[in-house]
Every structure is written in C-alpha cells, then in structure tokens.
Amino acid sequence: MNAKKIFSLASTTLAAACLFATVPAAYAQMGLPDSIKVPDGNKVAMETVGVGEITYECRDKANAAGETEWVFVGPKAALNDRSGKQVGEYFGPPATWQAKDGSKVTGTQLAVAPAGDGNIPYQLVKANPAEGKGAMSGVSYIQRVAIKGGVAPAKACTAETKGNKEIVKYQADYIFWTAS
C-alpha cells in the first residue's frame, strides 16, 4: 500500500472515530438490554441528566402479614441539559417529566432491566400525549439510562420503623424520543 492510500485510510478511520465519539453514549441503543430499546421509527428529541432523590417509606409488605419492606414513594429530580443548565424537572407519582416551558408528559412503563448493583433499573416508558405545547410535545418514548444509585436504603425496615421515610440520591439520563 502506498503512502497516499495509507494516509487516506487513516484519515477516513480518524474521521469515523471522531463522528462516533461525538455521539453521546446514551443515544447508542446497541449497548442496552433489548427490553428497553426504543422501537424503530423514533429519533432522539432531547437528552437530559436527572439529578435528584427518590423517597422510600418503610411499610407492610403486600401479601406477607407481619413483614415490612422499603417501598418506592416517588422521585424528585432536576432535569439538566449536558451543560448543566436546568431544563425541566421529574417528579411523581405519577411519573411526570415537565419542561421549563410548562409542557409535560406522563407515561406507562413498558420494561425495566438491571442496571448494575446499587442502581435502580434501566427503564423504557411509552409517553402519554403531552400536556401543553413545548419541549415535551410529540414525545413518544422516554428511556432511563446511565444510572447511578437510587436503590432502597440498606438500613433495616422493621415493624418498629414502619412509617419512616428515607431519601436516596440518584442520577440518570432521561432520553426523550419522538416519532421519525
């Protein structure tokens, strides 16, 4: 191979590597469990980083008399763009993603998948029609990926601590998709 072909091949390889390096990892569907992949025919509309907390409460275990467990009560998180500017919030129940412009969506959970020890699961949500016009208009799916933390407290939940609430910090990327 002559020097010109080697340079051309190296330039093409470098350009391709740069292109892939600029695509945020959260958009890449290939590294995600199949159950939470967004169906074909959708495109990324907005990417946010949710930084906040999840509240859990020590309650009686459903269908297990005399047993207790930590139960998810709800999330509260700021939705920031990649530069760290707040563009919305996430709260619930019901799970609600609201943009600064007032538009918001709720949704139905379609699937979850393990996201590693100490992390709440990956999640795929089918969005309901948005309320209000703005950033959430047309959102079809919401993915929760790149998760750090958020699992129920490790401390004991007992009959004596029933009713106690604990707040756990977490962070996750929320990727909003619209139909192509």
Score class of each variant (00 low, 15 high):
Thr108Asp: 15
Val49Ser: 10
Asn128Gly: 02
Ile142Ser: 03
Thr55Leu: 07
Ala130Glu: 00
Glu131Ile: 11
Glu57Thr: 14
Glu67Phe: 15
Asp34Asn: 06
Gly52Arg: 05
Asn164Leu: 07
Gln98Tyr: 03
Leu9Cys: 09
Leu124Arg: 00
Val145Ser: 02
Ala3His: 12
Ser35Gln: 00
Ala156Ser: 13
Tyr141Arg: 01
Asp34Ala: 12
Gly102Ile: 08
Ile175Val: 14
Gln109Lys: 06
Leu32Phe: 01
Val151Met: 10
Ala179Ser: 12
Val145Glu: 08
Lys104Ile: 05
Asn63Pro: 11
Asn2Gln: 09
Lys165His: 13
Asn80Leu: 15
Gln109Pro: 09
Phe20Tyr: 08
Phe91Cys: 06
Thr55Lys: 08
Thr106Gly: 09
Asn42Glu: 02
Asn164Asp: 12
Ala21Ser: 10
Ser8Phe: 01
Ala113Tyr: 09
Ala179Leu: 15
Pro75Asp: 05
Gln171Trp: 15
Thr161Tyr: 12
Glu89His: 14
Thr96Gln: 07
Ala111Thr: 11
Gly31Asn: 00
Ala113Asp: 00
Asn164Glu: 13
Ala10Glu: 00
Thr48Leu: 11
Gly92His: 00
Val23Pro: 02
Arg59Thr: 15
Ile54Ser: 00
Gly107Asp: 05
Ala156Thr: 02
Val139Asn: 05
Tyr122Gln: 02
Met46Arg: 06
Ala78Lys: 11
Lys162Gln: 12
Glu67Tyr: 06
Gln98Phe: 01
Arg59Ile: 09
Val49Met: 15
Thr55Ser: 06
Val125Ile: 14
Lys165Asp: 03
Ala172Cys: 12
Thr13Gln: 04
Val23Ser: 04
Thr55Ala: 11
Tyr174Pro: 10
Glu53Leu: 10
Trp177Gln: 09
Ala3Ser: 02
